[in-house]
C-alpha cells in the first residue's frame, strides 16, 4: 500500500501507467456517454409537465455532478500536496482545474438555457445558482494563482491552500436546495433513495454521468502526461522519449 503510494511520487512511473490506462477510460467513456445522450435526447419519454425541454437534464446533470466531483478530487490532491508534498498531486490539480472550469461553465450555461422555458428566467440569485457561480470563480482563482507564482513549489502550496479553502463551498452547493428556499428544485438522483423519475428516464441519465466521469479520467491522464513532460523536460527519460 505505502509502496504504491510512494511509487505514485515518481512522475516517470505515472507517465507510463497513465498511457496504459487511457484507452480503458476513453472507449467505455465515449460509448456510455453517447448511448446515454442519444437515448436521453431521442428515445426517453417526454416529461408530463415540461415536455421535451426537460431533456437538457441529460447534459446539465452530468456536467454539474462532474463540476463538483472534480473539485473534491482537487481538494484531496491539495491535502496530499500539503501533507505529503507529492509532486504528482499538484500535477493533477494543475491538469484538471481548466477541465473543471469548463464543465462548471457548461452546467451553468445549460441550466440557464433550461431555466428560461421552464422557470421563465435565464438567471436568478438563488442559493444553488449563486454557489455554483462561486465554484466557477474558485476554478478561475486556482488556475490564475497557479500561473501567477513562478516558483513551482510555492505555487503548489498556495494552490493547495486555496483549493482546500474552497471545498467548504461544495456542501453548500449540495444542500443549498434543502437548507433554503430556492427556485432550483431539489435533487432527483440521490444515493440513499430511489430516484424520483422512472427507470426509462434515469438509466440514460446515469449512463451519461458515468460516461462523462470516465472521459474525465481519460482527459486527466492526458493532461497530466503533458504537464509531467513539461516539468521533467530536463530529465533524461523525457529526452530519450522525445528523441
Amino acid at each position: 500500500m505505502w509502496q504504491f503510494f510512494h511509487k505514485l511520487g515518481s512522475p516517470k512511473w505515472f507517465y507510463g501507467i497513465a498511457g496504459r490506462l487511457m484507452p480503458w477510460f476513453l472507449v467505455p467513456g465515449l460509448l456510455l456517454l453517447l448511448t446515454g445522450i442519444v437515448w436521453g435526447l431521442a428515445f426517453a419519454p417526454p416529461d408530463y409537465l415540461q415536455g421535451n425541454s426537460y431533456r437538457i437534464i441529460y447534459i446539465h446533470v452530468p456536467t454539474a455532478f462532474l463540476a463538483q466531483a472534480c473539485y473534491v478530487m482537487m481538494a484531496a490532491a491539495g491535502l496530499v500536496t500539503l501533507v505529503w508534498r507529492l509532486k504528482l498531486a499538484d500535477v493533477f490539480v494543475k491538469a484538471v482545474a481548466p477541465v473543471g472550469a469548463v464543465v462548471t461553465f457548461l452546467a451553468l450555461f445549460t441550466g440557464s438555457v433550461w431555466g428560461k422555458p421552464t422557470w421563465g428566467t435565464w438567471w436568478i440569485w438563488d442559493a444553488r445558482l449563486t454557489s455554483m457561480l462561486i465554484l466557477l470563480f474558485l476554478y478561475f482563482g486556482v488556475i490564475a494563482l497557479g500561473n501567477a507564482i513562478a516558483d513551482e513549489k510555492s505555487a503548489a502550496r498556495a494552490v493547495a491552500v486555496l483549493v482546500l479553502v474552497g471545498v467548504v463551498n461544495i456542501p453548500i452547493i449540495k444542500y443549498s436546495v434543502e437548507w433554503w428556499n430556492t427556485l432550483h428544485q431539489p435533487a432527483t438522483l440521490k444515493l440513499t433513495e430511489k430516484p424520483s423519475m422512472p427507470p426509462e428516464m434515469w438509466v440514460p441519465l446515469v449512463l451519461s454521468i458515468v460516461g462523462l466521469y470516465l472521459l474525465f479520467g481519460w482527459l486527466a491522464c492526458l493532461r497530466m502526461q503533458t504537464e509531467i513532460l513539461h516539468r521533467e523536460r530536463r530529465a533524461r527519460w523525457v529526452r530519450e522519449l522525445v528523441e
Binding site: P45, P46, D47, Y48, L49, Q50, Y54, I57, T118, W119, G120, T121, I124, L183, Q185, P186, A187, T188, S196, M197, P198, E200, M201
Partner: peptide, 16 residues
C-alpha cells in the same frame, strides 16, 4: 413578475 418553480419529479405523460 411570476416565475414557475417545478419539482424534482419527472414522469412520462401517461404515468401522470
Amino acid at each position: 413578475e411570476v416565475l414557475a418553480k417545478h419539482d424534482e419529479n419527472y414522469m412520462p405523460p401517461e404515468v401522470a
